[in-house]
Structure formats: C-alpha cells, structure tokens
Design a binder for these strands. Structure first.
Lengths: 222, 222
DNA sequence: CCCATAATTCAACAAGCGTTGAAAAAGGAC
DNA sequence: GTCCTTTTTCAACGCTTGTTGAATTATGGG
C-alpha cells in the first residue's frame, strides 16, 4: 500500500555524498550486516535504484566511502611518523592511537570492515581496505622503529606486532567498552572509552618502553 | 541434474554430533558468513532438511554447539581461578590465555560469534554466547583480583579492563597473525601465533605487574 | 507377514538481497 | 512550444537463505 512517489528530478538533487552519509549512519546504527542498499536508500529518503545512478554498484559505493575516510587517517599518521616531528615515541604512539579513535569511533560498520567481515555485493572490500590501510600500518611501524633506534623502546621487540597490539586494542575498546560501560560502571560511554584508552596506553607503554618509569607529561591532563 | 538420492533411513543413522562437527568444519573453512544450513548439510553429506529433524532450527543447532564447546572452557578457567591453586598470577594468566587458545584456535567462525557477529536465522546467538561466556570472564577477573590482593599486580588497575586486554588480544592474534605470518616472516602459522603470544604476554605482563622484572620461570622453555 | 514408527529426501515457500530496464517527470535548449 | 537530457521511481529478475510439508524407504515389534 505504499503511495507511489512522483518520479523525475526533485527540487534538491541527490548528492552522492548524501548517500555516503546515509550509508555511514546505517553502519553506525545497524552494523555492516544491516547495511543493505534498501536500508541505505531508506535512510537517504530515496529509492534503492537511485544508488545505481550515482555509483556503479554496491562495491563501488563502499569503495567511495573508503576513498573518503581513509586518506585523512593516513595523512594524519604520516605527519606523525615524519622524522622531523621531534616528539618522543610515547607521545607519538598515544597520538597515533587517538588518530584511530578519531577516525573510527563513529562507525561500528567501518570497524567491521576493517576486521575483514564479508558483505554480499561487496566481496572485495576487505582486500581493498587492507591494501589502503597498509600505509597507516607502515606509519605506525615507522614510529616504532624510530623508538627502537632511539632506545626508547625495549630492544628485540617486533615492530609489526607492537603496532598490531596498539591499534587492534583501540578498535576492541571502541567496539566493546560502550556496550558494557553503563552496566558495569554507570559511566557514560564516551567517558568509559576515554578511561579504557588511558588504562590501555598505560599498560601498553609500560610493556614496550625501555624506561617505563619516566613520566609522560603529555598525559598529565587526564 | 542431480541424480536423486534414495529416501528413508541410511545404514548408519545421522548422529546430531556429526552435524555439529560438520558445522565446525564449515566455520573453520568459510567463517560465520559461509555457514549456511545448505553448506553444513553438504559438508555432512545429507539434505538440509535433515537438520530440522535433529534440531528445532538453525538457532537451536548453534545453541547446541555452544553447549558442547563453552562448558569445557569455563571448567578449565574455573579450575585455574580456584584460590586453592597455589600458582602465581603470572602463570595463571598465561595459562588462562592458553586456555582460550586451545578452545578457540580451530574455528574462526566461533571467534566471529564471540565477537558478536550476527547471522540470519540465529539472531539471538550473540546474546546467548555473551551470557554463557560470562563465567569465563568472571574467572579471569577473579584471578586478577587475587593478583591485586597479593600485590603481584599494580594497584589501581581495573580488573575488568585487564581481563579484556588479555583475552581479546589473544582472539585478535588467532585471527590476524596466521594471515600475515607467511608473507611477513615466512614462519608457519602455528609458529608465528606462538611467537606472537609470547611477545604479547611479555608486553602485557610488564604492563600490569607490580614487579615486572622478576623472572617468569614457567616461560623459560620458550 | 504386516504395520507403525523413525529417518531421510524432495520440492516448494516466503523473505531478503543486489541488480536492471523501462517509464515518468522536471528543466533547459532551441 | 517542442524536444532532449538529467534525475528519479517502479516493477521485476535471479539468487540465496531459513523453513516446512509431503513423499519415501528402512527397521523393528506383534
């Protein structure tokens, strides 16, 4: 019984970015498995087939989403990894973690993609994502290598694994802590996430630093 | 063109456990999203509808799978958390981590469930799983609390978060390290996972221990 | 030997998905 | 005013999924 909607151009044309925004909203609300083209179209207030006017197919749409969201993250991390940036390794790694927070916290669906979850109609997205995220991974590893050279990190640590620990735990915190926060501690999700990140970085840094007892002045405000 | 198979009972009747084993095999090979009833039936060499003779529906089948796999894990962890077990906190936490390894390493699909991934026809499974895994979580937390009381862990640490760090990173290692192992290090997956676990526990323990420099004799064989 | 029951397959259903081709309407060009 | 292009919706297709009811056959009891 859906009353038919008039065809033809609307007063305000549909911008592809509006569709991407709708997709992100559905991602955040219903996760990756809820992000069907019909759901995205409903969120954007249009017909599913309109998506095919603006994008080649679902995969291309998701690709455009990656194109929109990943380069800023990579840019931030590259700047951080620049050897000319004089900050210490602890502060750089903390900032790298917060970078991931900034770029991933608003979309569980995005994190599910990062995790490699497969979606019908967008099967090659996990591979694409891994490829495009590699520069981000390399930037983190570069920071860690520099920390090893400068003697700020314990010798013998595998930079790849250290980077994996730092970043994947950040993603886990963003996924899990908001769910349990209110039940366990009565804290607001954002506060609980911030507290968990501080605890995690504290544990992480003591675990990898060559001199873990030296104070971390950049963390004092917390 | 599929030549019809004879109906009626076979020489060897189908055991529900055989179906569960087939489901686990599909989980390990194709992950959670590949585990359709048709795929499981194909693996077990029977018709999908036979599953409905032995289980009420897909959800009940997955439930039975949890019933089969979770209690042994919980039992192991409860024994470990028993205050009468005199081992130190470091060894207990290492053993707890290895418990999760033992019970989860063979099934990426199972880990995806633990992660809360949703599956059509088994929508309530993540909630069930979380509920049934809670005793495991509590056991780990109990170990950590004891460690805090005995002064083996740094005071002020949140036991819930510390447990989360230890266990979720183990799951991440099982998910990610095998994929990258051969490309990055040329190591066999099992060896790479073992090495990553050692590195992780080393970092973790230095991060949470009150006296991280004391040697860990139980780790010396590695 | 007959019959009830247990175990199995088959064919079909409805729902959801990504996708496509055609129809409709608005806006600008001439 | 007419026509062409752009933007939009609609209806349908083919596929996969969980699920069901009927048909079929082997087995064991009386």
């Amino acid at each position: 019984m859906p009353t038919p909607r008039p065809r033809g151009p609307k007063a305000v044309k549909m911008d592809p970015r509006t569709l991407l925004d709708a997709a992100l909203k559905v991602f955040a609300r219903d996760g990756l498995e809820g992000a069907s083209l019909r759901a995205i179209a409903r969120e954007a207030g249009c017909d599913p087939s309109l998506i095919y006017y603006h994008f080649e197919n679902k995969e291309a749409m998701f690709s455009a989403l990656l194109e929109e969201r990943i380069p800023p993250l990579v840019k931030d991390l590259r700047r951080l990894a620049d050897p000319l940036d004089p900050r210490g390794t602890a502060e750089k790694l903390w900032t790298a973690m917060r970078c991931f927070h900034r770029h991933l916290h608003d979309s569980a669906g995005f994190r599910a993609m990062v995790r490699g979850q497969i979606v019908r109609g967008a099967e090659t997205i996990p591979e694409q994502l891994a490829r495009r995220l590699r520069p981000a991974q390399f930037a983190v590893i570069a920071i860690i290598r520099r920390g090893l050279r400068r003697g700020e990190l314990r010798p013998g640590l595998n930079p790849y694994l250290v980077g994996l620990f730092l970043i994947r735990m950040e993603a886990e915190i963003l996924d899990l802590v908001p769910v349990f926060a209110e039940r366990l501690s009565g804290l607001k999700p954002t506060v609980a996430v911030a507290a968990a990140e501080c605890t995690w970085f504290d544990v992480f840094w003591r675990g990898v630093a060559a001199h873990p007892m030296e104070p971390l002045p950049f963390l004092e405000s917390l």
